[in-house]
Amino acid sequence: MAEEEMDPTLLSVLEQKTLRWIFVGGKGGVGKTTTSCSLAIQLAKYRKSVLLISTDPAHNLSDAFNQKFGKDARLINGFDNLSAMEIDPNGSIQDFISNAGESGEDAMAQLGGMGNMMQDLAFSVPGIDEAVSFAEVMKQVKSLAYDVVIFDTAPTGHTLRFLQFPTVLEKGLAKLSQLSQQFGPMINTFMGARGGLPGGQNFDEIMQRMESIRETIAEVNTQFKNPDMTTFVCVCISEFLSLYETERMIQELNGFEIDTHAIVVNQLLFPQPGDPCDRCGARWKMQKKYLDQISELYEDFNVVKMPLLTEEVRGKEKLEKFSEMLVKPYQPPT
């Protein structure tokens, strides 16, 4: 470790102009949302436009910025190039199903035709509902043309599943579209007499839709695996379980070939001179032990050490102040 030590800041992430997707993830309650908001604030200084997306079903962005966010990207008060949106990875399949029909059709007809078919599909293949909604979100995000997108992901298990979708779905959809090319004409011949499927659609249309989803996902998949375009920022606290989860997550990310080279360690109780709190001292001792382990294990990572503050980090000003420490390492008072 005597050789060149990695910078203890997120500057490398901020200055890497080719990055398009940044994921922020970790165990629940370690400060993912605070970290992703801070990262977004800092990134907004370096880039033209930044979008912050929360995929956590328990949305915290609204709380962090004291502003209501929805399914559509909205500028955060006080910024002109930083937007935020909250999506529910489980909910948007419903939107997808109801959006599927022609706009002029009434809702019942849609449910009878395309809707039914999509529902069958959604329930027969495990994970496809989430994957399709993911694809829809990605499509939307891509059309919005943001410079960089930050995902504030749900706690660990969820995140990894989310990142797994592209691979799973691409395989499934490739098979489906191959089948449709073989049997599509036949099905259309049968359907032809009645003028298409009950919803007023024809089979090819549905297949084209699926194909376009597949293309989006394939593209996203290659981008996610490209370390120039995508990186994952791990957030943890200096405790055994959090560290354990982080290690597991990093190994799984390696398995998905997703780049990760930054760890943010939150809630550190740096000792303060003349502080009478002996519980803080004891806790710092324990945190120090795991900090040493982190720096030994993740030599080639940017390990950012963030202090535990005495107040909740909420609102623009506090977040901005907090985000400074991602760039300039916190110096404990001596």
């Binding site: 055994f240 290690e247 190994q251 982190i294 294990l297």
Partner: peptide
């Protein structure tokens, strides 16, 4: 794992 996490994780890998 608690006392020597780095070593433990390396073996685990």
């Amino acid at each position: 794992a608690q006392d020597d996490f780095a070593k433990w994780a390396k073996i685990r890998r």
